[in-house]
Design a protein around this nucleic acid. Structure first.
Length: 365
DNA sequence: TGGATTTGACCAAA
DNA sequence: TTTGGTCAAATCCA
């Protein structure tokens, strides 16, 4: 935390202040005999504020001085990566070497270091739709793998236009151990194909988020082939996934398959989860227009803030997304040859309220 | 018949 | 050595 005006500090203070104010509101509501719903909502927000504060502290504490914006510990307890105040890398494409080379080398089997972020889609069997909604992009499944500690196999998809348009965007779909109706979709890389404008873009900074209109609809209309760039998720709940919990979740279950956007059906017939309905498919955070059409896959290295995950106001729905700052951050640091670990973190159990005051006084320097 | 999916094998990172 | 990610041949399907 360099200087007296670190982003973390301000954010932390803002969170605490917000929590205090919410507590006051709750107090007033208690006296005013407000509805239980209102009180519950306030409690939810208060808890959210404190959880965020704790995450900030946790994250900050795990970073070396002056590195908060550049690295993030890997592992479930990673906490939040806050790179918000980082400007979009002037030239993310050229700044990176390894990620870029990886991404440009389709033949390499090396684990790609691409911008990665996770979205979660909750489905339910009531609506009759088959599987989670299409995210607006054309994906082609190229693999499935049983993941250690996970009850369900993970499916791998890549852009249909990978060959024709050299679009290296990929996504992984993993059904939640704890909630079979919850799918965690990890996007890697950004679309550079013709459907890029519809593609899911990595979350961006809070600043950007503030500028985005927020859809406060608590219940998203069953998105029809919505654009990948999920406008605003109606979920206000941003859960961070605790990596440890995954392993903990144990029971077994049949593998699952995720319907591809082109087929709509389940990938694996034996799956008993047939009629899935997308209850929520959103992507927390806002997307800066400047991120919409990266010139190259590498350009997907965006500064991201966990808080951009904040968003609209759904009340009960599950959803959330998280981001992976790793590569994004590396874009900003590679120039200094700093080894950047693959920082993958997610936020689970954290409810980020849609009204997170990024404009809280002092939020920004 | 062409495009998409399945699945075992391979490879590199951890 | 283990595990995750990808490849590519086989298979499926419209």
């Amino acid at each position: 935390m360099e200087g007296s005006c670190s982003w973390e500090q301000k954010t932390l203070i803002g969170e605490l202040i917000q929590g205090m104010e919410l507590a006051k509101q709750l107090r007033q509501n208690l006296g005013a005999k407000s509805s239980a719903e209102t009180r519950e909502f306030l409690v939810q927000r208060i808890l959210s504020s404190y959880e965020k504060s704790l995450l900030i502290l946790k994250w900050s504490g795990s970073m070396g001085p002056g590195q908060q914006h550049q690295q993030q510990p890997q592992g479930g307890g990673g906490g939040l990566g806050v790179a918000t105040n980082l400007p979009v890398p002037e030239s993310p494409i050229s700044v990176n070497e390894s990620p870029r080379s990886d991404e440009q080398d389709p033949i390499s089997k090396k684990r790609k270091v691409l911008p990665r972020w996770t979205d979660q889609v909750r489905v339910n069997s009531e609506n009759g739709l088959e599987g989670p909604q299409d995210d607006g992009c054309s994906w082609r499944k190229y693999g499935q793998k049983d993941i250690l500690g996970a009850k369900y196999p993970r499916s791998y998809y890549r852009c249909t236009f990978r060959n024709t348009q050299s679009c290296w965007a990929t996504k992984q779909v993993q059904r939640s151990d704890e909630d079979p109706y919850l799918f965690e979709i990890t996007y890697r890389g950004t679309h550079t194909c013709s459907q890029a404008s519809n593609s899911v873009q990595p979350p961006t900074s809070p600043q950007n988020q503030d500028q985005k209109p927020i859809n406060h609809s608590p219940i998203p209309q069953q998105p029809q082939l919505e654009h990948c760039s999920p406008m605003f998720p109606s979920n206000l709940r941003v859960a961070t996934e605790d990596l440890g919990e995954r392993a903990a979740a144990a029971a077994a279950a049949p593998g699952f398959n995720f319907p591809s956007s082109q087929h709509g059906g389940l990938m694996k017939g034996e799956d008993n989860f047939s009629p899935f309905i997308l209850e929520n498919e959103t992507f927390l955070g806002s997307f800066s227009p400047s991120f919409v059409s990266p010139a190259t896959p590498e350009s997907g290295y965006y500064p991201v803030s966990p808080f951009q995950m904040t968003n609209s106001a759904g009340f009960q729905n599950v959803h959330r997304s998280d981001s992976d700052l790793t590569e994004i951050i590396s874009a900003n640091t590679s120039a200094t040859n700093s080894p950047i670990p693959d920082l993958d973190f997610s936020l689970d159990h954290v409810n980020i309220d849609p009204n997170f005051p990024f404009d809280t006084p002092g939020f920004f320097c």
